[in-house]
Design a protein around this nucleic acid. Structure first.
Lengths: 109, 109
DNA sequence: CTCTATCCATAGATAAGCTATAGATAGGCG
DNA sequence: CGCCTATCTATAGCTTATCTATGGATAGAG
């Protein structure tokens, strides 16, 4: 009934880039990481995640590599590129500016 | 070149409701109000605004009425309904929860 | 009397996320 | 040994929301 979005539209790429800025991870791990560090509030559906990763690859913001996980499974690890790190900075500042602007509107008497 | 969105997707309805919570306004006035109170950061394009107002009307969150502006022009004034006020509260709290969650992800070491 | 600002509104394109689905394998457990 | 669950990948199709691009009308200024 109460339709709640899994995440705020327009923020997924930034969240992925930020997650990868800490350490390379495979897709499944990225989703888990975001879910966990947001205290289960943000959920990244697979149908959102993999297309997003494709976008990021195309832009050259991340690169991918097949490896083995600790649990001996085959997984594709995504790593932030220097360009991706720069992009993350851009998105972060734009996001903060947006939030600040929205806050002004919301708090305006 | 730098593609900057005019606003954060998913926040338009909330911004409109909040604006109307202060006083009834016509569409053009809503756009101006949001632009001004956000210090020109947020821009509501007409092609976003009017479909949004139609959505809000359909949901019963606002009602509309033709009137004369102070400058003697014909304009459609939108007013927040009690249901709309309730909805605004819901959207505000969901938004705050989202922002808090995103902040946790972004600030996570 | 023309021009600008004010006001309405819609159609079409695009982007992004969600639902649903599909498949493969490792390791635990019966 | 075979089933089940968790882990891991990925795509197709739907839907929704926003932007671009128009189009039109009128008040008041110059």
């Amino acid at each position: 009934m109460t339709k709640k979005a899994d995440l705020l539209p327009g923020t997924l790429d930034m969240l992925i880039l930020k997650t990868l800025a800490r350490a390379p991870l495979h897709g499944y791990g990225i989703a888990l990481s975001i879910k966990r560090s947001s205290d289960e509030v943000l959920t990244v559906e697979e149908g959102s995640l993999y297309p997003a990763l494709q976008r990021l690859l195309l832009q050259g913001w991340v690169k991918a590599e097949w490896k083995k996980t600790e649990t001996n499974r085959r997984a594709r690890y995504y790593t932030l590129t220097p360009l991706g790190r720069k992009q993350l900075g851009i998105e972060l500042s734009q996001f903060e500016q947006m939030i600040a602007a929205i806050s002004r509107v919301l708090q305006d008497a």
